[in-house]
């Protein structure tokens, strides 16, 4: 009935697996909010967790910036800027990620999903 080292390792492995799965489930709950700003002023806020279907947001301006909002992700679809860094950044989906189109002064950042706006006054 005495457990061998090998068996203990196996049990520990499964316990770890359970812990990892637990963490994964908890992480999935916090889908981010995409905040779109021009020159520091907030233009849009998308709850990526609630986003159904794809949506192209035409921000216009000198660089004709277009954003692509999808379920769980947002990206710069188009910009006439020279360096194209914003477009090449690709899809943003996790809190903390950000992409900026410096020439157009447009930034997109993902914040924690917990602070969604419940209502708007004004």
């Amino acid at each position: 009935m005495i457990l061998k080292k090998k068996d203990l390792f196996l049990i520990a492995f499964f316990l770890c697996l359970a812990a990892v799965l637990l963490l994964c489930f908890n992480k999935n709950a916090g889908t981010g909010i995409a905040v779109v700003e021009r020159n520091g002023t907030e233009l849009y806020r998308f709850d990526l967790g609630k986003q159904k279907g794809t949506q192209v947001i035409d921000l216009g301006g000198e660089y004709h910036v277009k954003l692509l909002v999808e379920p769980g992700a947002i990206s710069f679809q188009h910009s006439d800027c020279h360096d194209q860094i914003c477009v090449r950044t690709g899809k943003l989906s996790k809190p903390g990620q950000a992409a900026v189109c410096l020439p157009a002064k447009i930034s997109v950042r993902i914040t924690e999903g917990q602070k969604t706006i419940d209502a708007f006054t004004g």
Partner: peptide, 10 residues
């Protein structure tokens, strides 16, 4: 958490 009420930018 408290209700989060955004105040519109005039």
């Amino acid at each position: 958490t408290p209700w989060n009420i955004a105040v519109r930018d005039p």
